[in-house]
Computed example of a mutant assay.
Amino acid sequence: MWQALAQRIQARWYARSAYMALMPLACLYGALVWLRRKAYENGVFKTRRVARPVIVVGNITVGGSGKTPLVIALVTRLAARGVRAGVVSRGYGGRAATYPLAVDANTAPAQAGDEPVLIATRTGAPVVVAPDRVAAAQALCAAHPDIDVIVADDGLQHYRLARQAEIAVRDAARGYGNGWLLPAGPLREPLARLARVDLEAAHGAGGDYQLTVRAARRLVDDARCALDDFACQTVHAVAGIGDPARFFAALTAHGLDVKAHPMPDHHRYTPADLVFGDDRPVLMTEKDAIKCRDMTDSRLWAVPADAVLSDDFAARLDGLIAPFFEPTHKENR
C-alpha cells in the first residue's frame, strides 16, 4: 500500500503537478533546509576538511538521476590524466557491522550497497562507505595516502564534508519535476541551490551525457556477446534503478523484444524474483547484476552502460578538474 502511494505521489511530481495537502509540509521542510544551511554558513555546525580535495557529484532531487555512471566516468577521466582518485559514499542499501567500510569488487552489496561495489568493480579505485562522509574520507586518506583527490558519490547535502568542487546531476527528461520541495515535489533543496554548484550536468537524450549499451555478459560464466546478438529475440529485462524505463528503451533500440520487469531502486534480488515461467534470457543493468552475481542461472546477463560525454560538457568538466592534475597541486597537497 505504502509503495503504491509513493508511486502515485512521484507520478504527480513529474507530471508537473502536486497534492495541495502536501504543500504545507513542503514549506516546513524548506524552512528546515534553510536553517540547516545557515547553521553551516555561520559556523553553528562545523564543516570538516580532510587531507585531500573533494569533488562532490550529487543532485538536488530524490531518486536516480545518473550520478553513479558520471562518477565512474570522472574517476576514469582523472586516472587517464595521472590523477588517482578515491571514492566515498554513504553506501545506501547496505548495512555493515562497522563503519567506515573499505569496499572492493568482492565486497557483498548487502554490506556496502550496490553502487559502491559497482564503482569499485568498474574503476578499480579505492572506495570507502560510511553514513558519515567525513569519517569515510578520513579512512580513505589513511588507508590510501597515494590518492590525489576524493570523489564523493552523492553527498551534495552532506555539508559537514568540505569540498572544493560540486557537480549537480539532473535527469534531462524529468528535470526538476514540479519544482516543489519534498514531499510535494522531488526537490531536496530549492532550485536556487544550483547557483552555488560549479557544474550542472543533464543526463539523457539531448543532455550533457548519455548512457550507451553495446554488449552483454553472462553472469554464470562471464561469456560475452554483442547486445545486437539478441536482436529480434524476446527477452526479459529487469531494472531496479531510478528510471527503469530508460534501460528498457535502450534494449528496445537495439532491436530486442523486451518484456519489462521494473523493480524498486536498490532492490535486493532473490532467485524467485527472476522466474518468469520460461527459459528466455534475462537482461539486467550492471547495478542489478552486482546483487545477482552468485546466482547459478545461465539465463542471467548483465548489460554494462558507459557514460558518453558531449564535447561541450567534456570541455567544461576538464576545465573543472584541471587544477587537480597540475603538478603544483600534487606537490602542495
Results as ranks from 00 to 15, higher is better:
residue 6 A to Y: 02
residue 7 Q to R: 15
residue 7 Q to H: 13
residue 10 Q to D: 09
residue 12 R to A: 11
residue 12 R to V: 00
residue 12 R to D: 13
residue 13 W to Q: 06
residue 13 W to K: 04
residue 16 R to E: 13
residue 17 S to D: 14
residue 17 S to A: 13
residue 20 M to E: 15
residue 21 A to K: 02
residue 21 A to M: 04
residue 21 A to I: 12
residue 22 L to Q: 10
residue 25 L to N: 05
residue 31 A to R: 14
residue 31 A to D: 12
residue 32 L to N: 13
residue 33 V to C: 02
residue 34 W to I: 04
residue 34 W to L: 15
residue 35 L to T: 12
residue 37 R to W: 13
residue 37 R to A: 15
residue 39 A to Y: 07
residue 41 E to D: 14
residue 45 F to S: 12
residue 46 K to N: 12
residue 46 K to I: 14
residue 48 R to V: 15
residue 49 R to C: 15
residue 51 A to W: 08
residue 55 I to A: 05
residue 56 V to C: 10
residue 56 V to S: 07
residue 58 G to Q: 00
residue 58 G to F: 01
residue 62 V to M: 05
residue 63 G to F: 06
residue 66 G to E: 01
residue 66 G to K: 00
residue 66 G to C: 06
residue 67 K to I: 07
residue 67 K to E: 01
residue 68 T to A: 11
residue 70 L to W: 02
residue 74 L to G: 00
residue 75 V to M: 11
residue 75 V to L: 02
residue 76 T to P: 05
residue 77 R to F: 10
residue 80 A to R: 15
residue 82 G to T: 09
residue 83 V to E: 05
residue 84 R to E: 15
residue 84 R to W: 09
residue 86 G to L: 11
residue 87 V to M: 11
residue 92 Y to M: 08
residue 93 G to C: 03
residue 94 G to D: 02
residue 94 G to L: 09
residue 94 G to F: 02
residue 95 R to L: 14
residue 101 L to H: 10
residue 101 L to C: 03
residue 102 A to Y: 08
residue 103 V to R: 03
residue 104 D to H: 01
residue 105 A to F: 05
residue 106 N to D: 14
residue 108 A to L: 14
residue 108 A to K: 05
residue 111 Q to E: 15
residue 114 D to T: 01
residue 116 P to S: 10
residue 116 P to D: 09
residue 116 P to L: 03
residue 118 L to K: 07
residue 118 L to F: 10
residue 118 L to P: 09
residue 120 A to Q: 04
residue 121 T to G: 07
residue 121 T to Q: 14
residue 121 T to P: 03
residue 125 A to L: 00
residue 130 A to E: 08
residue 134 V to N: 05
residue 134 V to E: 07
residue 134 V to T: 10
residue 134 V to G: 06
residue 134 V to P: 08
residue 136 A to F: 09
residue 137 A to G: 05
residue 138 Q to S: 12
residue 139 A to T: 00
residue 140 L to V: 03
